[in-house]
Simulated assay, not measured.
Amino acid sequence: MHKQHTYRPRPGSRLLPLAAASAALVYYARWLRPRLLTWGATPEEVAGEYPGDELVPEPDGTSTMATTLPAPPEAVWAWLVQMGYDRGGWYSWDWLDHYGHPSADRIVPEWQSIQEGQRLGAVRGGQAWFTVALLEQGRTLVLASDLKVPSGHSFDPEWDPLPQAHVDGIWGFHLRPTPDGGTRLVVRTRGAGHPRPLTRPFDLWLWEPAHFVMQTRQFHNVRTRVAADR
């Protein structure tokens, strides 16, 4: 009779998946994540202060991303002020943030008027929105959001009861002219979650990567639009 051999894992082999996962986390935290959060921005832009930063004075997380666009600030501004779900869209991955409806590919005069305090719908149905927090024509547009967790629905901190779990944040667009007639567009985000142990993992593993994917796509699509207008 043949003796059956029982498989016995090598000593330490069960630790290999854990070691690989730990190495991946270290790689993401130390190398990849900082690059995602500062994509395209110079060290000076990352370290700089921007209007709207004071609206989230003690953020849990922040990002500063930038790109150079082949049009002057006033031309770029015309596209940015059209943003909104029920306006020009977000110029990003429309199938993700605009229910598949294409973002605007032209300047629409009736969408050029915008003012502080105005709400811009973020999703279909009006359950989430951005509020125009700061506005400096042709230079600065800061959108603020206050979201319940985990629903992702907006609330008004001036009128609604404060949810037990929520995230306050800003999404700021800062336009500066370049010597060759273009625009340096710097996008700054800052967010603070409450309670932090609940909201921070969500930020790290979902919101930050998602923001990178959506923001870089927006840069690309805005660049395509302003270039076509020249």
Rank of each mutant, 00 (worst) to 15 (best):
M1G: 15
Y7V: 13
R8P: 06
R8M: 12
P11E: 09
R14T: 09
P17L: 15
P17T: 13
L18Y: 13
A19W: 10
A24G: 14
L25G: 14
L25R: 13
Y27E: 06
Y28F: 15
R30A: 15
R33D: 04
R35P: 01
T38Y: 00
T38D: 00
G40S: 04
A41E: 02
A41Y: 01
E45P: 07
V46D: 03
G48L: 11
Y50G: 10
G52C: 10
P57G: 05
P57T: 05
E58K: 08
E58N: 09
D60Y: 09
T62D: 03
S63Y: 00
S63F: 01
T68D: 10
T68H: 09
L69E: 00
P70Y: 04
P72I: 02
V76A: 01
A78D: 00
A78T: 00
L80S: 05
V81L: 08
G84Q: 08
G84T: 06
R87I: 04
R87Y: 09
R87T: 06
D94F: 06
D97V: 14
G100K: 09
P102R: 14
P102Y: 12
S103G: 11
V108H: 08
P109W: 01
W111S: 06
Q112E: 02
S113I: 06
S113C: 08
Q118R: 08
R119H: 13
L120S: 07
A122S: 05
A122N: 01
V123I: 06
V123E: 00
Q127S: 06
A128R: 01
W129L: 05
W129A: 04
T131A: 12
T131V: 15
E136L: 12
R139K: 15
V142A: 07
L143F: 06
S145Q: 07
L147E: 03
V149D: 08
P150V: 12
F155K: 08
F155I: 07
E158S: 13
V167L: 14
G169Q: 03
G172F: 05
F173E: 02
F173Q: 04
R176M: 10
T178P: 01
P179S: 04
D180P: 04
R184P: 02
L185C: 11
V186Y: 07
V186F: 11
V187P: 01
T189M: 04
T189W: 01
R190Q: 07
G191N: 02
A192D: 01
A192N: 04
H194S: 14
R196C: 10
R196L: 14
T199F: 09
P201Q: 14
D203I: 07
L204M: 12
L204I: 15
W207V: 15
A210K: 13
A210N: 15
F212T: 05
V213W: 09
M214D: 07
M214A: 08
T216E: 05
F219P: 00
N221M: 12
V222N: 04
T224D: 06
T224Q: 11
T224A: 14
R230N: 05
R230K: 08
